[in-house]
Write a protein that binds this DNA or RNA. Sequence first.
DNA 1: AAAAAAC
Length: 513
Amino acid sequence: MSSDTTTAQEALTFTDLGLSPKVLSAVTDAGYTKPTPIQAGAIPHALLGKDVLGIAQTGTGKTASFVLPMLTRLEKGRARARMPRTLILEPTRELAAQVEENFIKYGKNHKLNIALLIGGVSFDEQDKKLERGADVLIATPGRLLDHRERGKLLLNGVEILVIDEADRMLDMGFIPDIERICEMIPFTRQTLFFSATMPPEITKLTEKFLHAPVRVEVSKAASTATSITQRLVKSGRKPWEKRETLRNLIKAEDAELKNAIIFCNRKVEVSELFRSLLKHDFDAGALHGDMDQRARMQMLANFRDGKLRYLVASDVAARGLDIPDVSHVFNYDVPIHAEDYVHRIGRTGRAGRAGKSFTITTRADTKYVDAIERLIGNKIEWHDGDLSTVTESEGEESPRRGRGAPRRAGRKDEDRKDRGERKRDRHATRDETPDAAPVEQPVAEVADIAERRARKDAIRSENERKGPGSRHEQRGDARPQRDRPGRHRQEEDDGTVGFGDDVPAFMRIVAKV
DNA sequence: AAAAAAC
């Protein structure tokens, strides 16, 4: 009986949804014939001008579920100067850029003006596009409001408003901005609203800003795609030990490893690990929010194009980014919030492909690992090979310590748990680390110039922030305290979390009831 | 113990 729905959905093709011929032809050219559940559920309503509340994780085909009907509806009418016809809000710059790419791909038969309003780049070009009249405006909230305050932007011509990744916006403290923006747009508009989870703050927002929305919900499963092999890897807790563990792990996986994202919890760690990997001749790039925007884009593009094999990243890359075919995810740090784990490893094992994830774990991480296992409802197996002891027992790459020379040389392994270890941790400053490479460090052989430049950019932009009074410190304290109630509540929620960007196999079978 | 976003 429930299989009715399944077969009905699976039989559905894009031609059944009411999209225009121009859009359909672009979809066909892109190689798609069958809509995903969220697309099948949302597109017909969106085409009728109804408000849609889409509850769907990244990776369910969500973006196309608003891009395609919007393109169809935009075929009538024209944009006027400084008065965009549609507006899409995204939480991060990369996601905004990704949505723009979707509009370009599916809008190739349309002559639409698309403007991307994100921070970190100059206003000039954005201003020009607004002046020319934008059919589609894709923005992060901060830069959008900035443009508006400068009087370059009128929002009262917006016919369709899309709010994407609403729960993440909540998490990032964007909700007040979102409310302000919603209030600037005429209530006659159509609103398409997407969120992976529905915490109370988000429900309140939808009650306030949506009119009789059609609710389309894709899946409630709080699980990780089964095509991902997950392993925990023991490591010493000192940075140089973790780096060594990671290198050994990468080498051990070499045969199967096509490319990998390596997640760190903090931006400084991203920088350090990135430089360390370059020093060890790994073909690596870096991505985090304090890098300048050009370097961010370039790194991502190079990784996507296969010019970089490794991407060291903060959680800016954990959700939503569409990087097809990542074979490995390494968690250099165990994520502090369990749901981030699911997002991170969801970068691999997509579209039914096999993927592997390894999480480097130290003694201090146990409770976070426990929380992750509770969330995914599974124990994660330990990796077979014992990579963690190599360094400690052989001591070959241990840092030279100034005083107290080779404290542990000749000592028995059983000593490992003694107090000396803890004390040593505190002394392990960055200077001691053997491979925190200086910035001028010659870069490993690089295939092409673009890549070389991206790396330089990244190093430079990292470097600009180095030294005393670095931006990390300044920002941390200077920023106004933002309440983010979403975080705490979400943990004890139903635990609904996201997957990769392609639809995992088990989600193609429509979630019902 | 973090990260993300406007200048």
